Amino acid sequence: MKKLNFKKLIALGLTAAAAVASFTACGTNATSGGSDGNTGSKVYRTLDEIKASGKINIGVFSDKNPFGYVDENGEYQGYDIYFANRLGKDLGVEINYVSTEAANRVEYLETGKVDIILANFTVTEERAEKVDFALPYMNVALGVVSPDSNVITSLDNWKAEDRMIVISGTTAELYLTKNYPDIKLQKYDSYATAKSAIENGNGVAWANDNTEVIAFAKQNKGYTVGIDSLGSQDTIAPAVSKGNETLLNWINDEIKTLGKENFFHADYDATLTDTYGADYKETLVVEGGEVKKS
């Protein structure tokens, strides 16, 4: 009879135990919530898990003044940030802001990199198949800004050789691709690069949320918003990973509660008045998740 090699048996036993532990650990954060195209599940943290950790990860823009940007002191500011700060306070947790771009907002939720997206996220049917939207807190439509030397007031007579600047992954890109397929799009990954493009003449005009192009024209001389409402009126809302019902329900309840104190009107006063003045407040603000019928 051959002698047993106890050292080898012990080593094999430790390896097997480690494999089991690794498998178990990997499975603790995977929660069934719809297919991601690969594993059939999405990774997210429930409300209780977020509270237990003491920190929430919120995806925001870092270059889109006045909605989400980093100021000269390195602090996040803007309309979305004002709201996010209140969410963190009422949850009783610290906020970890994660800078995001338009094109990776869905990806950051699907991979669990963030718990919430608060980055001017327009609600669409296509996006709602991949993420869960909470109640809205803002109205929005599309707009087009162009240099004063060639103000674009209609897309019906667009020249074949001209290009429209858009940010990848935005509602503007989706809308123009579907409704104006003959317009050539000059695509950029961020607000900052799109802004540089229009300033450098790399496109005839720039299509984006009307709130953003109006803000750009007000902050930069020599530009006019020739089209301030393109397509349908939409809403902006927080988004969470598909299936994260506990966090979604809490956010919805929070938005309803904040509506009773006119929180989003106060948010507008604090962050948007300098850009838009008082005239746009009732048009843009959605209070308590209730969109007013026009």
Results as ranks from 00 to 15, higher is better:
24 T>P: 00
203 G>F: 05
7 K>L: 06
198 I>L: 15
188 Y>K: 06
223 Y>N: 01
245 E>G: 04
287 E>P: 05
250 W>I: 11
38 N>D: 05
51 K>L: 01
186 Q>K: 14
294 S>R: 12
239 A>G: 11
28 T>H: 03
86 R>I: 04
268 Y>S: 09
66 P>F: 04
148 D>R: 12
275 T>V: 14
27 G>M: 10
142 L>C: 05
124 T>N: 06
163 R>W: 01
166 V>I: 15
79 Y>E: 11
239 A>N: 07
284 L>D: 03
54 G>L: 10
62 S>T: 13
122 T>C: 08
53 S>Y: 02
273 T>M: 04
18 A>S: 13
206 W>A: 03
74 G>R: 05
236 I>K: 00
195 K>Y: 12
14 L>F: 13
29 N>K: 11
94 E>N: 15
253 D>L: 09
251 I>V: 14
72 E>Q: 12
77 Q>H: 08
99 S>Q: 09
133 F>A: 08
141 A>D: 12
179 N>F: 09
76 Y>T: 00
174 L>Q: 15
35 S>P: 02
40 G>K: 02
54 G>S: 10
112 G>R: 02
142 L>P: 05
186 Q>N: 15
133 F>E: 00
294 S>N: 14
140 V>Y: 00
164 M>P: 02
270 A>H: 02
203 G>S: 07
241 S>L: 08
242 K>Y: 04
43 V>S: 13
290 E>Q: 15
205 A>T: 03
38 N>E: 11
270 A>F: 02
34 G>I: 07
85 N>C: 04
263 F>T: 01
46 T>C: 01
92 G>H: 10
136 P>N: 12
44 Y>C: 09
71 D>G: 11
105 R>Q: 15
147 P>H: 12
98 V>A: 03
1 M>H: 13
61 F>N: 00
178 K>R: 15
216 F>E: 00
257 T>F: 07
217 A>W: 00
133 F>P: 02
27 G>F: 06
256 K>I: 07
150 N>C: 09
185 L>T: 11
172 A>I: 09
236 I>S: 01
242 K>S: 11
175 Y>E: 08
15 T>Y: 03
105 R>V: 03
240 V>K: 00
205 A>H: 03
18 A>M: 14
240 V>L: 02
204 V>A: 14
239 A>I: 05
12 L>T: 07
105 R>D: 06
101 E>R: 10
252 N>V: 11
136 P>A: 09
265 H>G: 07
216 F>L: 07
144 V>C: 04
259 G>I: 13
82 Y>P: 00
238 P>G: 13
